[in-house]
């Protein structure tokens, strides 16, 4: 029985993740169009809603090109390494508390309830560097190689700030378990959300959001792709479904990072003024909060120009890392004083 429940949960969560990723490809084009006074895709299905489906079909039927001189095995490994870690991380995100659907007790609405949930997310998002760097190297193309190198250097640098900022939350809530992190914040008073912790919370939230932008290679930090300089960066030589996998990986990583920001700083599934909300309200709240961050990803992309590469590295090492460290120290001081 518990096995069946896990299967159902898995189907729900992964269906949701892939659905969100697909919807994001449409949302990206729609929102960018709206911001540029255009209309955006509106031909496939009502209002263009079936555009992701059309894109998927197109990707499947595209010719698959492997460049001459590419290292075949690693070339194939690249997209897999980009997509799989991003998809795995969703397993520990709690979407709602105790859930009962049609009288069946589903327990916590997340695939697993790991004690080290946060660490699991960070470890796997660290592994997603490999997609870009391996794909870039194996393509046997200068643009791809440069894109891959940039991606890896950037992600390794920003991972430090990401971990330090996440540690601030761990210190505030006294646990690495994502469920417990949410439960600490779920008191019915939304001022208990970590983003409302004076100074520490706000600095942490801003730092965390910006570092997730860098971690997922999104604008204004998308040096791995950087069309004007590197054609397409690490996926220049990829086509067909392999390219689609890179895309899927990017959007899944964005979704997971938006979920994680929600869990860490916005109280996850906790509903303001309603501590014991039914699961469906909690899921709705969670999705609303996550949707805001997903929108922010797109919003920032179509607002800000790309950084310069040295600016990115300076920002990561000389600004974000010290601030994150100081913030962690401040959090420690606040906790030990209170």
């Amino acid at each position: 029985m518990s096995f069946v429940i896990i299967l159902i949960k898995g189907a729900l969560i992964y269906g949701g993740l892939l659905g969100t990723a697909a919807a994001m490809t449409l949302a990206e084009r729609k929102v960018s169009a709206w911001m540029q006074l255009r209309i955006g895709p509106n031909r496939v299905g009502p209002g263009g809603l079936l555009q992701p489906l059309a894109d998927g079909i197109k990707f499947i039927f595209k010719e698959e090109v492997t460049p001459d001189g590419a290292n075949k095995g690693i070339f194939r490994l690249g997209p897999i390494m980009a997509a799989v870690p991003a998809m795995l991380t969703i397993a520990v995100i709690p979407f709602a508390g105790e859930t009962t659907i049609f009288g069946i007790d589903f327990g916590l609405l997340s695939l697993t309830d790991l004690d080290i949930g946060l660490l699991f997310v960070l470890a796997l998002s660290g592994l997603s560097v490999y997609g870009g760097i391996l794909g870039g190297w194996a393509s046997n193309s200068k643009y791809s190689l440069l894109g891959g190198l940039r991606a890896s250097a950037q992600m390794v640098s920003y991972e430090l700030s990401l971990i330090m900022t996440a540690l601030t939350v761990v210190a505030l809530s006294g646990s690495m378990n994502l469920r417990e992190i949410v439960e600490v914040q779920n008191t019915g008073n939304f001022l208990d959300w970590h983003c409302f912790t004076p100074v520490v919370g706000q600095v942490g939230l801003i730092l965390f959001v910006i570092t997730t932008f860098a971690e997922t290679n999104r604008h204004p930090f998308d040096f791995a792709e950087c069309e004007p300089e590197l054609v397409g960066g690490f996926h220049t030589e990829y086509s067909s479904m392999k390219f689609a996998l890179f895309f899927l990986g990017e959007y899944c990583a964005m979704t997971v990072m938006a979920c994680l920001t929600t869990v860490l700083f916005l109280g996850g599934y906790s509903v303001p003024f309603w501590e014991d909300a039914p699961w469906i309200v909690q899921v709705g709240t969670f999705m609303t909060k996550t949707a805001f961050f997903l929108f922010l990803f797109i919003w920032v992309r179509w607002t800000l120009p790309r950084f310069r590469y040295d600016q990115l590295m300076n920002l990561g090492w000389k600004v974000f890392f010290p601030i994150a460290l100081a913030n962690l120290l401040l959090a420690g001081a606040v906790i030990s004083l209170s």
Binding site: V31, W34, M35, Q36, L37, R38, I39, W299, T303, L304
Partner: peptide, 16 residues
């Protein structure tokens, strides 16, 4: 400020 500008643009009439 930049984000506010792009957000406002979303509600202006389309030119397409």
């Amino acid at each position: 400020r930049g984000l506010a500008i792009t957000f406002k643009k979303m509600f202006e009439p389309r030119v397409t």
